[in-house]
Design a protein around this nucleic acid. Structure first.
Lengths: 157, 157
DNA sequence: TATTGTTATACTCTATAACTATA
DNA sequence: TATAGTTATAGAGTATAACAATA
């Protein structure tokens, strides 16, 4: 049990706690993590086609249909025709959902500040650098593995 | 957009990448994140009743029934009677699953070392302290909120 | 009377495949 | 022929409530 293992486990613990905190925020509303993620994406990038949402969230178009159905029924988003492509549908946040997402972004920023406030000032820069380094390395590992798998598949065919 | 926000977002990014990495590991097996989590728990604490698993994983007993059904069918766990309580069932890892979990724990440790290796040596101690501080503060916030909600519920009754 | 696990029921998330309308 | 979205179908995770067996 080296201290090296602990860092990783702590990171996973933080992410678990985070999800618990997010889920708790929507008790009593029809919002779920997946639906909230779609709203968050819409708030960040503006009105989008369902196809664009499927690409950006990396889920199937069918999945987007279901999520948008629920959000539309709840009054969070509206569907409108695409101005030039009659196959496509534009999904937009309603005015009230825009306000809600604004509040949510503010709360997110406040939580960030609150949590960083718990870190010793002298440790903050190193923490940022460290987490960035870990994130970058993880990306590399995942990319390398995806490439390896693609090669294997090509061989298998 | 202050750098403070970035730390939190990076942490969330790391957790997302992690989940992607975990999921990828079981392509082609009947193992899913939830089932793996149950196996991980069994490997850590040894044979347990379903009730104990439900408590430790913080899910419903019904959910455990389904997960154990699938893992039993796949040859990962066995159900056996409790020696003194005839209502209860003991769930244990099979020998092959024990070996698999052993490998998984080793890979987990290797990944930890690999990721920490990407962090500048001078930053490692501060990173650990920082992540622990954030984890602790998050726990406090969640506990405080749970208490507040419990109070509200009591008033509502 | 309380506890352990299961059956019944229901909702959400997710995917693939077939299909319609449009490009 | 290709693309955008929906319907059909299916599996997984999850929860609550009712129930059986046992404590």
């Amino acid at each position: 049990m080296t201290p090296e293992i602990t860092v990783l486990d702590r990171l996973l613990e933080v992410s678990e706690l985070f999800q618990k905190d997010m889920a708790r925020a929507f008790d009593g509303t029809p919002l779920t993590p997946s639906r909230t993620r779609l709203l968050w994406e819409l708030a960040a990038t503006g009105p989008s086609t369902q196809h664009a949402l499927a690409s950006r969230l990396e889920v199937s178009p069918r999945n987007i249909t279901g999520l948008v159905d629920a959000l539309e029924a709840g009054g969070y988003v509206t569907r409108s025709p695409h101005p030039s492509d009659r196959r496509a549908i534009i999904v937009s946040l309603t005015v009230s959902a825009q306000g809600m997402m604004h509040d949510m972004q503010r709360e997110h920023a406040e939580l960030s500040a609150e949590l960083l406030g718990a870190v010793a000032p002298a440790d903050r820069a190193a923490l940022l650098r460290g987490v960035e380094a870990i994130s970058g390395r993880l990306r590399e590992l995942i990319a390398a593995d995806a490439e390896r798998q693609a090669r294997n598949q090509a061989v298998g065919e």
